[in-house]
Design a protein around this nucleic acid. Structure first.
Lengths: 324, 324
DNA sequence: ATGAAAGCGCTAACAA
DNA sequence: TTGTTAGCGCTTTCAT
């Protein structure tokens, strides 16, 4: 039988209300009383029952996050940031994985909604109207997705893409292929919004290919198409695809970066570990997770829907070189 | 104001208990009544308050899992399995990351304990006595760790290691280097328990090196040492290390698998994506996560502490070849 | 500064 | 088969 607030009250010779106050409103009890209560609570190993507390306060102290696919190394990074920040502010976090399915996503969100103070939806697949409905159930923060009236954390991939193009242009590339990710994805859209104007500005022609699956196989499948365009550089939607391109090129005996330069997006762990190490636009995964928690907390505190844009960083490694 | 059980009761013209029963003990109400209640509940969008329910039943419907490090691709795999299975049985899952620190681990477990029915500890870092204490707070299942009296899911890495050695022996290797993972780790211990007898049996000499950090840098750092032993094959504690070895060998111009064969452990996503693709012992990550949930559910159902051992699979790829 | 008492929304006896 | 009632453990008025 776990120890309750009454046990502490009895032992400390005060009322339950005093115990309650000693724990959650220290200013309202005399210092000596408070100390005695705390001592007793400690000695008895008292842990307030969160269900009872939240039943009355309406707050759970929990956050929920749903990501599209934990197998994509990008999301564990975000998740890790969310959890780290949540821990710092004393929150626990519910996690789930939608398998990139909008319907599942909806079920998961509604399931979590009842037991969290707020939700973080990472690159959600739901359509705008559905998403708006979900966001209305509980305070919600979006990551890498925009929806009017809903706060969001954005990673500035347009700027990252512009950096990437500038880098290629500086290396003398005049023709590049872009391997698209999922057609409807906000993130793919954003990359294009960075790519096209920057390419125009630098006088780089763009062959837009795809959409492809945003994974290794997708990249491997796209590699030959990219080659056929005659482009001297390939920009992939994400690192997983870039890795696929690298692998297929190796198979084909196409030298990277001597004959073709390859560029990824995300900077997942393996981008630095492959051969050649991948030049890529690093997205602030952990920072994004942390920012989402902060934004959520602000909303719970009554702040209006804000948007926070996080900078990206071009990491130049060995997969890009001057056009030969 | 959210809709409560009383709203449903009033609208359906029954008592609250009937509503309660219609939802959680369908057999106890007449079919027509039940249908009416369900219709009203649906129409009103009624969602039972989990805090209130758990306050009285003592059950939360939540599970908790803590992993050492989400950046290691092995753990997202497990986490993903846990979550998938939990969802099937209607549970939500709390997640956290200990950063491979025993003290943090303990804090996290105690923090979660109050709001979960059971806990899954994945390759925990806590010492046996501390772990035993943690496991006594709530029903607990261990993954890749054993402790008397505590149920656990084990991945049979001893057998996997034996397979690996047999594979190398068949290729004619007579001398191999083993790059140890963390000294105290149960999993490292297990690998050795498979390696040594199998090596003996097949007449393969083993150079035991390390311990090293179980990551890319650790492997890269260990590569030269391994080479210096004169072994024709290197078995790394895990894939991340094996990838480090591969990278360093590439730098050194040491041909894999022509001059040295390299073997990993885990079969993380990248193992199939690197060059050359890595021969490795695949650990059932998702299956392990699912099994842990099942075991936990059995414990909650009153079953005694059981141990479930999951088989591993040797995946032969291009990083191993006959000794030249 | 402290205590008494009224619930939060729900389930589980116990009655009917 | 259904309703009535008593709490689960806690916070929060309202008194004192």
């Amino acid at each position: 039988m776990p120890v309750t607030i009454r046990d502490v009250a009895r032992e400390a010779r005060v009322s339950v209300s005093t115990v309650s106050r000693a724990l959650s409103a220290p200013a309202l009890v005399r210092e000596t009383t408070r100390q005695r209560v705390l001592d007793v609570a400690d000695e008895l190993g008292y842990q307030p029952n969160r269900a009872a507390r939240s039943l009355i306060t309406g707050r759970t102290g929990n956050l929920g996050i749903v990501v599209p696919d934990l197998q994509n190394p990008f999301y564990p990074g975000v998740l890790s940031g969310v959890q780290a920040r949540a821990r710092e502010v004393g929150c626990s976090v519910f996690f789930s994985d939608s398998g990139e399915d909008p319907a599942t996503e909806e079920v998961l969100v509604r399931g979590m909604a009842g037991q969290v103070d707020g939700l973080i939806l990472c690159a959600p697949f739901a359509a705008d109207d559905h998403l708006a409905q979900l966001a209305s159930v509980r305070p919600t923060v979006l990551i890498n997705r925009v929806l009017p009236g809903v706060p969001s954390v954005l990673m500035d991939s347009s700027a990252g893409m512009a950096d990437a193009v500038a880098h290629l242009a500086a290396l003398g590339h005049r023709e590049c292929a872009y391997l698209s990710g999922p057609a409807g994805a906000w993130s793919n859209h954003r990359r294009l919004r960075g790519l096209l104007p920057a390419a125009e500005e630098h006088g780089v022609a763009v062959h837009q290919l795809g959409p492809f699956d945003p994974n290794f196989a997708g990249g491997a499948g796209a590699a030959d198409l990219a080659l056929a365009t005659g482009a001297t550089a390939v920009i992939a939607f994400n690192d997983l695809m870039a890795l696929g391109v690298l692998a297929r090129f190796a198979e084909l005996g196409v030298a990277v970066p001597e004959r073709v330069s390859v560029l990824g997006f995300d900077d997942i762990l393996y981008a630095a570990m492959c051969a050649p190490p991948l030049t890529t636009v690093a997205l602030p995964m952990r920072a994004g997770g942390r920012a989402a928690v902060d934004l959520l907390l602000e909303c719970l505190g009554g702040a209006g829907p804000a948007t926070r844009t996080l900078p990206t960083t071009l990491r130049v490694r060995a997969s890009t070189a001057p056009v030969g």
